[in-house]
Write a protein that binds this DNA or RNA. Sequence first.
DNA 1: AACTTTTTCAACCGCGCAGGA
DNA 2: ATCCTGCGCGGTTGAAAAAGT
Length: 298
Amino acid sequence: MKPRGGRGGGGEQPAVRKGPWKAEEDEVLRRHVREHGPREWSSIRSKGLLPRTGKSCRLRWVNKLRPDLKTGCKFSAEEERVVIDLQAQIGNKWARIATYLPGRTDNDVKNFWSTRQKRLARLLRAPVPRRRPGKQNCSAASSHAHELPTKQNLCLDMIPFQATTTPAHHTGESSSHDPRAASQHRPGDAPFPGAHDLPPPPVPPLTHAGAAPTASAPAFLPYDGDYYAGDAVAGVDPLVFVDPAACPEPLAVVPPGTFFGLDDDYVHGGRVLHPASSGVRFDDLPPETFDFFELPQL
DNA sequence: AACTTTTTCAACCGCGCAGGA
DNA sequence: ATCCTGCGCGGTTGAAAAAGT
């Protein structure tokens, strides 16, 4: 198709190929990265190595070929919650959110979120949900879904939101507004830093209702390569720990209007309301909405 | 078994930013 | 200061797979 606006084009280059990648193409791309690192994507085409745009090559590498990716593995309970928490805090900054999830890409996070949004939207339209297809999770079987008490396990069933969560404005600008800072790896860096090597992503301090984050009770802590540092935190506001056994980390409150993109007709005070009956709370929603209800207790 | 619906995920596109010429 | 180019991000699409009827 059309190479945009006369760009990218020195001399004679093969027509751009699109669509699924072949194994041979993957191998060429891997070789390029081995030799040059994960950069100079445009040169792959200009040198005639592959009839793919640099953009396409980069995407293929980042989303599929990077050696540190978790593939064929659904999001765990932890990962789900991290995504939900961070999306509530910083919005659709998938690349940044992905920096908290070792082995996950922004595309993974984006797809995950999109799936949950659709699922919730469908559930809200259809009060009697069908049994959700139970694909095998890495760490769970879906048959637990109806066995778990929702309220105790519902990490997002929070106390009323009242405070200073910081949507995009907090995250977006200043030095922290460098979405690339967290994900871009420079030539001198370790080739593909896993979570252990990730610098603390520049996520703003998260807050929860009634208390500002403190050293003793951080609202959220980035992945530390092993487990979330919040696990061991003592003295965390008990309101945040709905059930420490089921939900060991402190969580940020979901600010109104942010949950899965629902507007305030659906979300009120940090709780999701059924559109047709404002007395229905988030935890009245079918557990099928979330996979992590189905996970065994951590 | 066949068909339909839903979910998953790979890949593309447009836009904006950064850096070099 | 401006333009050009490369790259990264977020949104979207569509095919394939899985599950339900």
